[in-house]
Design a protein around this nucleic acid. Structure first.
Ligand SMILES: [Mn+2]
Ligand SMILES: [Mn+2]
Ligand SMILES: [Zn+2]
Ligand SMILES: [Zn+2]
Lengths: 125, 125
DNA sequence: AAATTTAATGATATTGGTTATCAATAACAA
DNA sequence: TTGTTATTGATAACCAATATCATTAAATTT
């Protein structure tokens, strides 16, 4: 949204970017950190870079179980969260959802968050 | 859901229950603790009692900003969250929402979570 | 290609929400 | 009343996330 600071193209920024940009499983900062273990990157830098990518609109966040997860899919979509394995799956936002938006109120809507929680097919035994 | 443990009616349980059961603003554990400041109740007990009330199905939880908030409204409903004052309002779940449920997948849905984030009328200046 | 500027890094301390520990207490049953 | 044991409260511990700060290294200027 705001690009007011001159962002330097560090090797750490590239590392975090490349580690998260293609992932579809909504990793935490620690997940990314562990993936980059061999590079010597600091945990604080991972947190900082992920936060700056959110600022830049490259990532969105998904809060689950009081932990921030990062999502490279920035277009509006819904989620399926398995309460057993905690996996988060992207799913298409239902077509008619915008028609159901409460417009009577003077609430200025910026964002919709739709999540179905349950048990994924892998965990159904 | 499960009432497998013999729950004792302590005065602390009554205090927490009475402090949260009629609230409509989705308080945190610390909010309840501060409301009960004069009673000498311990912060750990507040956390424990709130958790046990969730177990008993008396409360539900709403996670926002990596903090657990407690909700005495246990029937399915949606939320409006103001990203400025962080107030959470209950709102009716749109009628047609169940028809939009993704049933193609073999995902066993237990719960729906629908939240609109934006700016409440009070914060629009 | 230096020299300069300063954003970014990494180690680590700190914060804040939440849970674990455990001796003391009190609810409940006998 | 007595015995059992769930619950309490103080506090240590845990964990995600942020703040601090000396050092490093992009980016810009000589
Ligand atoms: Mn997603
Ligand atoms: Mn609610
Ligand atoms: Zn699963
Ligand atoms: Zn507001």
């Amino acid at each position: 949204m705001s690009k007011n600071s001159p962002r330097r193209f560090t090797k750490q920024r590239r590392l975090v970017h490349d580690a998260v940009i293609h992932r579809v499983d909504h990793p935490t900062a620690k997940d990314i950190f562990h993936e980059l273990k061999g590079t010597g990157i600091g945990i604080a830098t991972v947190y900082r870079q992920l936060a700056s990518m959110v600022e830049d609109g490259i990532l969105t966040t998904v809060d689950y179980d009081n932990e921030t997860r990062y999502d490279p899919l920035t277009s509006p979509h819904a989620h399926l969260i398995c309460s057993i394995c905690n996996k988060i799956k992207d799913i298409e936002l239902p077509k008619g959802i915008d028609n159901l938006t409460p417009e009577k109120l003077s609430f200025e809507i910026n964002e919709i968050e739709l999540t179905w929680k349950g048990i994924c097919d892998d965990c159904q035994n």
